[in-house]
Design a protein around this nucleic acid. Structure first.
Lengths: 183, 183
DNA sequence: AGTGGCATGTAAGGCGTTACATGATTTC
DNA sequence: GAAATCATGTAACGCCTTACATGCCACT
């Protein structure tokens, strides 16, 4: 799938591997993150497939920037993929839930401490979605009004993050309250 | 991590690989699923580590059942892991959000069709959490009252699934409404 | 006659993480 | 003087998925 993250990004404008890392960290990381090393590997394979092409741009005192551009067949591959209806739901993995499920033996206090710790982490995420992420989208539309429609979709994914994290918080609070009384 | 799913399961009682697949499908699948083939592979490596031990139980007209039991060092490994606080948040991946993010070019109707399709899938999941999953937990506690405390934690993970899927539905509805007007 | 459940496993391939390797420039 | 940023990549390893391989029994 990282393949399509990269095609989607390059479809906006050409970028280097390093640029792509910035791009994903600031946009798709929330539902599709990527390590730099994996980006470089995937770029190589996309170029071999002919879906992107690259050009080395010399720089002073730094390695050349290798800038990638999406090709026509790359655009075709992206559009084809976008058009195929997605008829499943991705498998979700959550280490906290896994630990919680089997945690009866470690005792009430250890469990509650764990839940309180997670509360802090998720609170930070909610804030991030409401502030930084929202502002970043607003700024992009301001600069490039042509992306207004794209931004509606970006906003939908941001809103998903916000709602999901708010729910996580509500669940943590509810669970903490229940366990304090009944465990 | 599958390692710990298995240790956690075998800590309740001995099981075969096939049993473990049933167990996970009915309990942890929601936040940690497993393929049968991977279960068999992981069982081998856990046995090599000495965290579980196995015994072949002959059967008629079927391959032997290989039943695994958690060892003392397996119980120790499980408890140790449960006690280590989890100070991160797992990376979330969602193909639907990924497609949506880049979907501006495929047009309003294709996007809305996709969202409506997903609505049906997530509605089914909500129902499942509210009915089958809830009943399964209730039945287990009825049969084995000693698991009352464990069941409180299982119920917390069930409730997480229910709340999360309800939120997914709310988000889909909200997004459909917004795009119908503004896209 | 065919599907689904019971029961075990191996092999190949894909995707991803972490660690390693290098090195100049900019900022605190 | 140290840390972060810019910039690219390779190598080892881990975990997981999909496909393959086998075969009986029960039910429809």
């Amino acid at each position: 799938m990282l393949k399509y993250v990269i095609l989607g990004a390059l479809n906006y404008h050409p970028m280097s591997g390093y640029d792509l890392k910035q791009f994903t960290d600031r946009s798709t990381a929330n539902f599709w993150h990527a390590e730099l090393s994996q980006i470089y590997v995937t770029l190589k394979s996309l170029e071999k497939e002919g879906l992107i092409s690259s050009k080395a741009i010399p720089q002073e005192g730094r390695p050349d920037r290798r800038v990638y551009t999406i090709t026509e067949s790359g655009q075709q591959a992206l559009t084809d993929w976008l058009r195929v209806p997605f008829t499943e739901i991705d498998q979700y993995k959550d280490t906290l839930l896994l630990k919680l499920f089997f945690s009866a033996q470690i005792g009430k206090e250890a469990i509650l401490a764990q839940l309180h710790l997670q509360r802090g982490l998720h609170q930070k995420l909610v804030d991030q979605f409401q502030n930084e992420t929202a502002e970043r989208i607003a700024q992009t539309v301001e600069k490039v009004p042509a992306l207004r429609r794209d931004a509606l979709l970006w906003e939908a994914t941001r809103r998903f993050g916000e709602m999901t994290e708010e729910t996580y918080l509500r669940w943590l609070d509810e669970t903490i309250a229940t366990l304090e009384i009944n465990f």
